[in-house]
Structure formats: structure tokens, C-alpha cells
Amino acid sequence: MKQTFQVKHAVGGRMIIDSNKHDVSYTLVPQGQGWKFTVSVPWGPMIEELLAHKEELNVFVFQEFDDQPTLKTWYYIKDGTVEFDAAESKLTIIADSRIEYYPHEYSV
């Protein structure tokens, strides 16, 4: 299975982080009523932009399988935390809710 991690600016859909294009690793764990992403990424313009829009972010995880359709999970940040620890080069994102769906079911 291949996974893709993306962070987008919710207003306009501008891509900020795309694991297919940026060298980032991440973990995802349930936390309380939400989900916690911990992303290893160096400080730079990408993180500056992300933090400037931290209240307007959406996170996506695509799971691509060889024998079944791609599953897309859309995580809403809404009131969640978005923080960057420069000493550790770690971005933390807390998502409040999520929706799982199969994109092929919504194509025109």
C-alpha cells in the first residue's frame, strides 16, 4: 500500500505539503476525540506559509492499494492545534474530525 500525506490551505485549495513532492515523514495517532499528526519537516517557507494559515488547513491521507480503490481521508483542523517545534523540526497538527471516502464514487 502506498500512502500520500497532504496539507492544503482550505481557502482556495493551495497545496502546502505533499509527501509525493516533499521529503516528509509523519505519524498519525488517535488523540482524545481527534487525531494527532506529527510531521518531520525542516523550518522554511513551506512551514512559514502553513503557520500563517493554521486556522484554515485541511489534511488529506490517500491510501492506494493494488487490489482495491484508493481510500481518501479528509481531516478537518477547525479548532485543533497547529504548532512547530524548531528545535526538533517537528510539526504537530491536531484534527477535530474526519471523513473517509472513495474518490471514484464521486467522479463525473
Rank of each mutant, 00 (worst) to 15 (best):
T4Q: 12
V59P: 09
A10N: 15
D85F: 11
E56N: 15
T73D: 02
D18Q: 07
K78S: 08
H22L: 13
L91Q: 08
P69Y: 07
E88Q: 15
V108E: 15
T27C: 08
Q68N: 06
A87Y: 02
W74M: 10
W43P: 04
Y76R: 11
N58G: 07
I47R: 09
Y101S: 15
E49P: 03
L91M: 07
A87G: 03
V24Y: 05
I17Y: 00
G34H: 05
K72A: 14
A87V: 10
E48N: 12
E105I: 03
Q3W: 02
K78R: 10
P45M: 06
T38Q: 14
H53D: 04
R14G: 00
V41D: 05
M1P: 08
W74C: 09
F84E: 04
E49M: 12
V24M: 05
F62A: 11
S40P: 01
A87S: 14
A52L: 11
T92M: 04
G34N: 06
D79R: 06
V11Q: 13
E55L: 08
L57N: 03
F65S: 13
I47V: 15
K54A: 04
L28Q: 10
A95G: 06
I47S: 08
Y76E: 12
Q33R: 06
L50H: 02
L28W: 04
I47M: 11
V41A: 10
D18T: 08
L71I: 14
I16R: 03
I77E: 05
K54R: 10
P103R: 04
Q68P: 00
K8Q: 12
E105Y: 07
S97P: 00
V82A: 01
I77F: 01
I47E: 07
L91V: 09
L57P: 07
Q3A: 10
M15H: 08
L91I: 09
E49K: 12
L28V: 11
E100R: 10
P42H: 02
I93K: 03
M1V: 10
Q63D: 12
K2S: 09
T73I: 05
E105T: 05
S19H: 09
V59H: 08
S40H: 12
T92K: 01
E88P: 00
Y101N: 11
I99T: 13
V7C: 09
S40W: 04
I93N: 04
R14K: 15
S89G: 02
E48W: 01
L50F: 01
P69S: 12
Q68Y: 09
H9D: 13
T70W: 01
L71E: 13
F62N: 12
G32L: 03
E88M: 14
E55I: 04
T70M: 06
P69K: 06
M15N: 11
P45K: 14
A86G: 00
P42I: 04
Y26C: 08
D23I: 10
E56G: 04
F60T: 09
